[in-house]
Amino acid sequence: MWKYANPRLFLDLAEKLLPWFAGLTVLLFAVGLYISLIGSPPDYQQGDSVRIMYVHVPAAWMALFCYVFMASASVVGLVWRHALADLAAKSTAPIGACFTFLALFSGSFWGKPMWGDWWVWDARVTSVLILFFLYLGYIALWETIEDHARAARAAAVLAIVGVIMVPIIKFSVDWWETLHQPASVLRFDGPTIHASLLWPLFTMALAFTFFFFTVLLIRMRTEIIQQRIRALRLAAIEE
């Protein structure tokens, strides 16, 4: 792993891995979308609306996964000064934010027929929304601090604080929800999920995961190249 702290080696590795990752992503999406949209039966209760779940649930998983990934990379970057880990954390944030947004967005499309409302102040929904804000704050911090090294360390601290706070936020929001139990909320934890629903779900989750790593590699590669361009530019105006 330390070997690949060298951007050159990382670029080579990324070059080799990318086609595989991209190919797998496309394949998994093709299979996943087919079985979730066409190859699986509608739910006996939710009807075809259940198909939104095959996007919604993996997106929500990825939203959390990305945050944990980002925070872990931040720890590595902060403690061992691993430059690529900083880049990985930085590159993860926008992807994670997109997954979070997708989870919220698809959730609201599911909520309209199910709950009769585009938005419900349900505990889980609210904590995902707060996760979205944490992502945005993290991205904004990177944007605001001009110096790359300083931005990386500050953002890493924020990501780690977020990891510690997220469970607490989640816990308090759950508690808040039990304090004010709204009348109209139906819960989506029916008895047990049927296997015919499980397969498309896992295929899609796998597709999302590979999609994430593909985009992550591309983003990191872009970051490295951008840094080089900036360095070249600065060198050009030296006199």
Binding site: E146, R233, L234, A236, I237, E239
Partner: peptide, 18 residues
């Protein structure tokens, strides 16, 4: 003032003299 080389550089990156 010899600025052609840095024409496309954001002012933020310039030194005090530049």
């Amino acid at each position: 003032f010899g600025l052609a080389k840095m024409a496309e550089t954001p002012a933020h990156y310039l030194s005090a003299g530049q």
